[in-house]
Design a protein around this nucleic acid. Structure first.
Lengths: 199, 199, 199, 199
DNA sequence: TATGAATGAGAATTCATTCAT
DNA sequence: CATGAATGAATTCTCATTCAT
């Protein structure tokens, strides 16, 4: 068997199939976790044999790893857009939340949630953790800007970040692709998580 | 042969050891998921062999099941206390949040997050889902009371519940027992999740 | 599953079974090579399942590794006895050859031949190679003693060692336990390899 | 469709490439054994994909088979030359040894060692075994001629053949193409294996 | 109560092989 | 001629589970 694994990512046929694979994998991992997902589960969704997956990915661990890289990219994109839109801290947070959930429940999804870090091998774990940490840091910085410009109330930014990211990360556990619900999430989450419950 | 599995919960020696086991299991499950956790993982934490666990539990599935029952109990308790404390809807929500996280990060923890419902066998799945649904319903009712009494702003209670529960459920993914952080969570989470970011 | 792998080697029941396993494995490896031997092949000879082997050995690589350690021990023993017997270099070589083949074709056998070094993992490979090198060195030293004391003719000791060791190492490829042939080997090999063909 | 497999060996382009392939295969097989060698290993050495090998050979088994045929041919050649050179038995043996190692370590090499006969399919196995047996028989006959003409001492010709062939077969295990060492082998092996160690 | 020993089912992974292009 | 893509069979390995002691 000769592998394409060395090829440039630009090879479109290959890249497309591989991307479909990552989505299928992300879906499964969100549903049943890394260990709970067999390669057959993923392959079945694609109408392939489990062995065929090895044409696109070196092993199962790399599958999660790639899923995480994709997730990190998606998160970064949402963050970039929110920041470049400008406005005060509160507005940026709100827009970030909207962009993030839009991507997660949209065509780009499903995106793997960051809950299987222990399954990654050390190098990958470090890389993914670093990406994740950097994302959190940017979010916390956004909060601090809001606090500074007066749009956000004084708070522990670390805990606030944890709370909000948790709510976002949990979405894939209960959202399974229903379009109506997707719209609901996009409409409600940014508000709930930024403005709270107070009347 | 008298199997211990039939004994009353009042049999204290047995009940105690069993409870330790459920905590150890909850810890592992939160960390690595159901399939990612081997019985040896759990046994190791207790200084036992995996075979010994079968004295306390019929099989692995029952272990999660019991963990989930415990989790449901803990959630119900927090809810009961919050409701019986009285006050307006907003105050109840806030107190519920506090009681819930207090239990999660305190001595009663670790509490298993119900994130692997599909691994349960049908009867157990139904039971646990019902418990979980009933908990959500109570929470949504609480929100509705708040909306009715004017303490909570108009909102989609289902989505709001999802957001808040997600934030709570995510805690075990990043909290690993540090007491200082535990205090931080208890101090901040109820506020963040009820009052949002607005200044 | 709780493993005995950590126990002291002195645990007799365990050690005995394990030793039987190593012999069975050596037999198979000699016959069909490392990759050509499946764990089922080895297990079948012992009336066990392949899974049962994992109770005694961490993985297949460790199985060869242990076989090699056993082989190295056997070789060293033969060498030790030959040296301690004294006499001139030629006599020592001849006795070494006899002791070595006696062990190989006797009750202690089968002994795995050193032909699957590439299958070992780096640390083990290094260790085994070191043992093997040290054995060769001792043999070459023996030859040099013989040259010095005049009992052995001038020769390239390295090549001579290679030739003789090759003849010995090849034995398991064609000898499969027949007692008559075993006797033949013991009777003939030491002479052929030390005295050559000359009349 | 005209498959190349039917072509005459005289078809030079094809024959050449095929020969390169057999050498590459022999090299791999000697190194890691039949099962330990994947077709990719062989293909890599030739800068091809594994699939391409099927243009030259029906399947993997045929690859070893062809390697063994080539080995038998090479051995026979050495034997033929040694016999036709004339002289007494001892001289013939000695020359045979020289011719044999010359081929093995020279440009005609690498030559596959017939150490995995069991992997051949029955017809091939029988054929190769017959060739191998006939070679051994010729060697033993040579020894007997030497005993008869007084140039070789009385000995068990079967065991003597085993010892000498073992030493030769083992060469590829430690010789990996170094030209200086090649010369050393050619210079020393014939002497060591025919004349022994005596001073 | 708990362990040692073993098993069987399933999982990841490799690899020879095929075939359309 | 050669490759890309895929498959099915075999193999290693893990793990829940059992049972005698």
């Amino acid at each position: 068997m000769t592998t394409r694994l060395a090829r440039k990512p630009a090879d479109s046929r290959f890249a497309l199939k591989r991307d479909r694979m990552l989505k299928a994998a992300a879906f499964c991992f969100n549903q049943k976790g890394y260990s709970g997902t067999s390669l057959k589960d993923v392959a079945d969704q694609l109408g392939l044999t489990d062995a065929a997956l090895y044409y696109y990915v070196r092993n199962k661990e790399e599958l999660v790893y790639q899923c995480y890289l994709r997730a990190a990219e998606v998160g970064r994109e949402a963050m970039d857009r929110a920041v470049s839109d400008g406005g005060n801290g509160f507005d940026q947070v709100r827009r970030y939340l909207r962009y993030h959930v839009e991507i997660m429940v949209g065509d780009r999804g499903p995106v793997a949630i960051m809950s299987e870090i222990p399954s990654l091998k050390p190098e990958h774990r470090d890389e993914v953790l670093a990406l994740s940490r950097s994302h959190s840091t940017r979010f916390e910085a956004m909060l601090e800007r809001g606090i500074a410009d007066g749009s956000i109330a004084q708070c522990d930014v670390r805990m606030t970040g944890n709370a909000i990211m948790g709510a976002l990360n949990w979405i894939p556990k209960w959202f399974h692709g229903d379009a109506t619900i997707a719209q609901n999430i996009v409409d409600e989450f940014p508000h709930i998580l930024s403005s709270g419950l107070k009347s």
